[in-house]
Simulated assay, not measured.
Amino acid sequence: MPSALTDLFAWAVVASFAVAAAAEWRARATGGSTRLARLLGAGAFLAFGGFWLVLFPHFAFTQKSYVEGVLSLAAVPASVYAAWLLYGGRDTLFVLGRAIAAMGFVYLPFETIPAISAFGLELPAPKRLLIETVAAQTGTAISLLGYTPELLRGPNGYWSTYLFVTPTGHRLTFTVLLACTGLGSMAIFVGLAAAVRAPLGRKLRAIAVAVPIIWALNIVRTTFIGIAFGKQYLQVFPEVVLTLFGASDPYKVSFFLSDRVISQVLAVVALIGVTYLVLRELPEVLTVIEDVLYMVTDEEYDLARELDLPREPASGSERGAD
């Protein structure tokens, strides 16, 4: 489970990207060199790689998520390579750095800010508000499909756990966590929109396209997982599944297949689709995607031509090193 130290590390990484972005902005505004900004940005990417290395055991062994485990481990060398490229003069990576900073400022308050007592009022933590909202909407969707699990307080005290009882009387609980809210995916697109240099209207339209779609698809996902696990609908090859996930509880088979396999794979497909819709409104995001593809393949791409999207002129701050 990520700890307070991990949260502090995350804020430090986000702050380092923000400092690099400020240094780049100042250099461009004054006509100076971006050398210091590139050095700060490279350091931020190295710290970012260290952050994912710290999280890898949590995803791979605690959460038993192959998809998230592989992605977090792959992010380590990718971050190191990005640091090397940015320091060497690939200034387009400043956009990715700004995006990571913005994503962090969206996501981390929900993860790290506790309830606040002020002026005689008890304000619930943003995390609780989000989790209980998603849990309530998931429960509504489950009930519309004819199932009636009991809503309980979860381990964290939130009203976010649903109790299913099997025909044999076995009790199964399905709990909505922050990772189940779609916040991470929404933060990605908000961060990308915030990072690129484009008119505010098009940025807001891109966010208005991405966020509602992700929210709706996430409710579908949590509903599917809840029903598939609660009703044990995916008890397929239990011995093989339990062996692959290093588990022994046969009732977890449907959960592993519905969440760790089917939902996470489909989530990647959904993100690709949402990305294409966002690009129709905000083609400047192509800069980030092309940089990521370059880091993976070591080849330059012109995705605007491949996807038949308009190519917005590059900002002077991302054209190259001095």
Rank of each mutant, 00 (worst) to 15 (best):
E24D: 14
V236F: 08
W11P: 02
L46R: 05
F237M: 15
W215D: 09
V190C: 10
L8K: 13
A99G: 07
P114M: 04
L152W: 09
A187F: 03
W84G: 13
A247R: 11
A208Q: 06
L108P: 03
Y107G: 04
L242P: 10
L121P: 15
V253S: 01
G320V: 00
P167S: 12
P77V: 02
A75P: 06
T6D: 15
A99F: 03
S16R: 06
N218E: 01
L266W: 08
E239V: 13
E122F: 13
I188H: 12
N218S: 03
F245H: 06
P2M: 15
L93Y: 14
M1G: 14
A22W: 14
L183V: 00
F51L: 12
P250K: 00
I289W: 03
N156T: 13
R202E: 08
G226K: 01
L244C: 09
Y158L: 09
L53T: 08
E306M: 15
A195S: 05
Q232G: 04
L46C: 07
V106F: 06
A74N: 05
D322C: 11
A102N: 01
R38L: 05
L178D: 08
E312T: 15
A198T: 08
T62G: 12
L129T: 06
M103R: 14
L151N: 11
L183D: 01
G230L: 08
A75E: 09
W52A: 10
F17Y: 04
A10K: 12
L178M: 07
P114T: 00
A47Y: 12
R205N: 10
L8M: 13
V261D: 03
